[in-house]
Design a protein around this nucleic acid. Sequence first.
DNA 1: AATATTGTTAAGTTGATACTTAACTATACA
DNA 2: TGTATAGTTAAGTATCAACTTAACAATATT
Lengths: 113, 113
Amino acid sequence: MTGAGMEPAKVDRIFQALGDPTRRAILDALSRQPSSVSDLARPLDMSLAAVVQHIQALEESGLVRTEKQGRVRTCHLMPETFATAERWLSERRTLWERRLDRLGALLDEEENG
Amino acid sequence: MTGAGMEPAKVDRIFQALGDPTRRAILDALSRQPSSVSDLARPLDMSLAAVVQHIQALEESGLVRTEKQGRVRTCHLMPETFATAERWLSERRTLWERRLDRLGALLDEEENG
DNA sequence: AATATTGTTAAGTTGATACTTAACTATACA
DNA sequence: TGTATAGTTAAGTATCAACTTAACAATATT
């Protein structure tokens, strides 16, 4: 049995955050190592302010957490939030797949039984 | 080894499609049973035309496939596309988690070794 | 102390996207 | 044959999201 599922508002913000390609690029970079805001901004073709805004969205979604020490803010992934999104997807996928299996079994019975 | 990953353009459309709450509601309904366009529209507080447009986005992303027979178009989930999104997430999550593990091991060595 | 670096915030612009209505096509049904 | 049902398409609107610039704050460097 898979759990009852997370509050929809949380899932909403997670998937909304994942919907933007720049934010996914940031997540991709962060999967390799924690990084500062300007590290993350360097390869991206946009202002630092824009990147800051993306990081805020990612943090509000829970996909990223940040700490500031001195003048540099360091960002890192939050794997549990990734897992929440994965679960949303896999719950629906497997629900569907199990349905297909049952249907297949039913057809077999009809054929053989 | 996990594969090299799918063409980014495809992943883009998948996650963009997943970013909308109405579309996720449609996917949720479809995880339980295949449905016609008007079946899907009934619980949603918007015009049929709007729902049609959402379904088009879902179909272009590959999350849903549809066939029309007679005047009714039936929609169903495409589990492989769900799996593609799940893989994108889990690849990054596990990359990060393995990194954490290595770091933990390193600290242990330092402590004990 | 002066300067450079790092990040934050506010305000405005622009383009994308989620809707609407309306006109239409195609199929099923009485 | 006429009417209801199911869906499609086009065109317009309005909201939202992603950016910009600019002014600022805080910390580090020389």
